[in-house]
Amino acid sequence: MKAVHFGAGNIGRGFIGLQLVKTGYEVCFVDVNTTVVEALKTRNSYDVGYASEQAGRETVEGVTALNSLSEPEQVIAAIRKADVITTAVGPTLLAKIAPLIAEGLQQREQNTPVYIIACENMIGGSKHLEQEVARYQSIQEDWYFPNAAVDRIVPLQHHEDPLYVEVEEFFEWVVETKDLPESHPHINGVTYVEDIEPFIERKLFTVNTGHAIASYLGALFEKETIAESLQDPRIRRGVQTALYETGWLLLEKYGFNPVDHSAYIQKNMKRFENPRIHDEIVRVARSPIRKLSPSDRLVKPAKELMERGIEADGLARGIAAALTYFDPNDSESSELHAYISKHGIEDTLHTYLKLSAKDALGSRIIEHYEAMQNPVNSIA
């Protein structure tokens, strides 16, 4: 069995590639990082460590890599023979890898099914990738693009070995089966479900929402890591408040068991607090424009709660904190900071969040934003 995985970064090596190898796939990573690609070619293996009390480690063997910039023909040849194609490149890069995937798929023999799974932090990632591929090549009936939800915390790495990656022990990989044949592959550790939307939103509105708010409130109070942020009772209370708000929304929409979901929230709080995971604020907080978009982890649940008559004050506070965030090394943060400075917060809400300063949610966000100009008193 052969798999091609786009993205030889920390998620690719420490999660998706690892599970594919455990299933028995020969994995070919595709990336543009010359150092990582050449090391994978030379060694055909790498180590994964676990941020836990046991601090275990395992070796992932039987892997190789290709550079998509200098070796496109070899990548196309690998796609031609692959049983599974996965990605972990970030939502914005799916459009960039789509032409190469389309060319490889076009050259496949007929009646040879292939499964293309975008393992990205976004809703409908695989279907989005399918649309991008369709711009270059008509989609064949045996090319399957099942949506997926993935969850594993992999912080920024600082190791001498460019291939070594350290991850948390917990992971979740859910794949939707409603458009798949019964003969679809079963990857080690994957949960297969008929309808993935409840699982995507549970993860997005709990893990991603909580992580983001911890980062933006943490930055406001000059913390360096997520674990450090949650040692501050003001920040911990702010995160937990927002997660119980999103919990109400998930219970309303999907009928999750309240006791089970409360336990899920607390499990994720413990994950964020893990002192062995040096998860830096600058990593989690980056790309605030994407995270503040109307369909993402902060604004979407807040709007849906307010429409149901449920207060979303914790989420409004988290959104306001995101609007105060500034990292000159992050292009989205710089753009947002410049726009607020030039046009003001009300215009920013309308332009980026598609919210009005006159509605209940918009006015609540502005109230918190103004209070955060004096951050000592910004969280009651």
Rank of each mutant, 00 (worst) to 15 (best):
G7Q: 01
G9L: 08
R13Y: 04
F15G: 03
L18G: 00
Y25F: 15
V32R: 11
V32F: 09
N33H: 10
E38N: 13
E38Q: 10
K41T: 00
T42D: 10
R43E: 14
N44V: 03
D47T: 15
V48M: 08
E53G: 06
R57F: 11
R57L: 15
L69H: 14
S70L: 13
E71H: 00
V75Q: 01
T86N: 01
G90M: 06
L94A: 04
A95M: 07
L100W: 07
E103S: 13
G104P: 01
Q107G: 06
N111M: 13
V114E: 06
N121T: 13
G125K: 06
S126V: 02
S126Y: 00
K127C: 07
L129P: 09
L129I: 08
A134V: 13
Q137K: 13
S138E: 15
W143S: 04
V150N: 05
V150E: 04
L156R: 02
E160T: 06
D161W: 10
L163I: 12
Y164Q: 08
Y164T: 07
V165E: 03
V165D: 07
E166H: 04
E168K: 09
F171I: 11
W173K: 13
V175W: 05
V175K: 03
E176I: 02
T177F: 08
K178N: 10
P181Q: 11
E182H: 11
P185F: 01
N188E: 14
N188A: 15
V190T: 11
V190S: 10
T191G: 04
Y192A: 09
E197F: 08
F199S: 02
I200T: 15
K203L: 12
T206D: 01
A212N: 01
Y216D: 01
L217T: 08
A219I: 03
L220C: 04
F221T: 05
F221G: 01
E222A: 13
E224F: 05
E228Q: 13
S229F: 00
L230I: 06
L230N: 06
R234Q: 12
R234F: 11
R236N: 09
V239E: 00
E245N: 04
Y254H: 03
D260N: 14
I265K: 07
I265N: 04
K267E: 14
K270M: 12
K270H: 12
N274Q: 05
N274C: 08
R276E: 02
I281W: 05
V282Y: 15
A285I: 13
L292C: 10
P294A: 12
R297V: 09
K300F: 12
P301R: 11
E304M: 12
L305N: 05
G309P: 03
I310A: 13
E311I: 12
A312I: 09
A316Y: 10
A320K: 10
A321K: 06
T324K: 15
Y325G: 09
Y325W: 11
F326I: 03
I340L: 10
H343V: 06
G344D: 02
T348N: 05
H350R: 15
H350V: 07
Y352S: 03
L353K: 04
L355F: 11
R364P: 00
E367S: 09
E367G: 04
Y369F: 14
Q373H: 07
N374F: 12
V376Q: 14
